[in-house]
C-alpha cells in the first residue's frame, strides 16, 4: 500500500495511473451529473418560500463547497512540495489552482443570480460574500505568481507559501455566517446534526455534490497529465511511451 503511494510520486507512474483512471472517473462523473440534474430539476419539489428559484442551490452550494475543498487540496499539495521537494505535489497544486478558481467564479455568479430575486440585490459586502471573493483573489494570485516566476522550483515554493498563508481564509468563509451577522443565511447542511432541508431536496444536493467531487478528480488528473507531458518531454520514458503508442 505504502509503496503504491511512493510510486505515484514519480511522474512516470502517475501518468500511467492517471491514464488508466481518467476514463472510469469521467464516465462516472457524467452519469452522476445526469442523475443529479434529473433529481434536482425534475424530481425535487418546489420550496415553500423561494418557489423554483431555490433550484440554483444544486449548482451554487456544490460549487461553493468545492471552492473551499480544492483550496485545501492545493495548499496541502503545495506544503508537501515545499517540505519534501516532491515534483508530483507541485504538479497537483498547480493543476488544482485553475479548477478551484473556476468553482469559486461559479459559486459567486450563481450566488449573485440567486441573490437578485430573493434578497433583492446582486451583491452585498457581507462577511460571507467578501471572504469568498478573497478566495477568488487567492486563486488568481497563485496563478499569476506561478506565471510570473521563471524558475519552476522557486515558483512552486512561492506559490506554496501563498497557498498556505491563504488557508486562514477557509475557516473565515465557513464560520462567517456564525461569527458575524450577514445577509447570507446560516448553513443548511451540517455534518453533525439534522440538516434544515427536506430529504427530497437534500438527496439531489448530495448527488450533485458527489458529481462535482468526481468531476474535480477527473479534471485534476487530466490537468496533471498535461503538466507531466510538458515538464517531462525530454525524458527517455516519455519518448519511449509516445513512440511506443505510435506502433
Amino acid at each position: 500500500m505504502w509503496s503504491f503511494f511512493h510510486r505515484l510520486a514519480s511522474p512516470k507512474h502517475f501518468y500511467r495511473f492517471a491514464d488508466r483512471l481518467i476514463p472510469w472517473l469521467g464516465w462516472s462523473t457524467l452519469i452522476t451529473f445526469i442523475i443529479g440534474l434529473y433529481l434536482g430539476l425534475i424530481v425535487a419539489p418546489t420550496d415553500y418560500q423561494q418557489g423554483e428559484s431555490y433550484r440554483i442551490i444544486y449548482i451554487h452550494v456544490p460549487a461553493a463547497w468545492m471552492s473551499m475543498f480544492v483550496y485545501v487540496v492545493m495548499a496541502i499539495a503545495g506544503g508537501i512540495g515545499l517540505i519534501w521537494k516532491m515534483k508530483m505535489a507541485d504538479i497537483i497544486a498547480s493543476s488544482a489552482a485553475p479548477l478551484g478558481a473556476a468553482f469559486t467564479i461559479l459559486a459567486l455568479v450563481t450566488g449573485s443570480l440567486w441573490g437578485k430575486p430573493m434578497w433583492g440585490t446582486w451583491w452585498i459586502w457581507d462577511a460571507r460574500l467578501t471572504s469568498e471573493l478573497i478566495l477568488l483573489f487567492l486563486y488568481l494570485g497563485f496563478i499569476a505568481l506561478q506565471s510570473a516566476i521563471e524558475d519552476r522550483r522557486t515558483a512552486a515554493n512561492a506559490c506554496a507559501i501563498l497557498a498556505l498563508v491563504g488557508v486562514v481564509n477557509i475557516p473565515i468563509i465557513h464560520y462567517s455566517v456564525e461569527w458575524w451577522n450577514t445577509l447570507h443565511q446560516g448553513p443548511t447542511v451540517t455534518r453533525f446534526g439534522k440538516s434544515a432541508m427536506a430529504t427530497s431536496m437534500l438527496i439531489p444536493l448530495l448527488t450533485m455534490f458527489l458529481a462535482f467531487k468526481l468531476y474535480f478528480a477527473t479534471t485534476l488528473l487530466m490537468r496533471a497529465r498535461v503538466e507531466i507531458l510538458e515538464r517531462e518531454r525530454d525524458t527517455t520514458w516519455m519518448k519511449n511511451m509516445i513512440m511506443g503508442s505510435d506502433e
Binding site: P45, T46, D47, Y48, Q49, Q50, Y54, I57, M118, W119, G120, T121, I124, L183, Q185, G186, P187, T188, A196, M197, A198, S200, M201
Partner: peptide, 18 residues
C-alpha cells in the same frame, strides 16, 4: 432607502410547511 430580504436556512416543499 433599500430593503433586502434575508431568508433562513430551511428548505422544504409547501405541503411539509403546511
Amino acid at each position: 432607502s433599500t430593503v433586502l430580504a434575508k431568508h433562513d436556512e430551511n428548505y422544504m416543499p409547501p405541503e411539509a410547511a403546511q
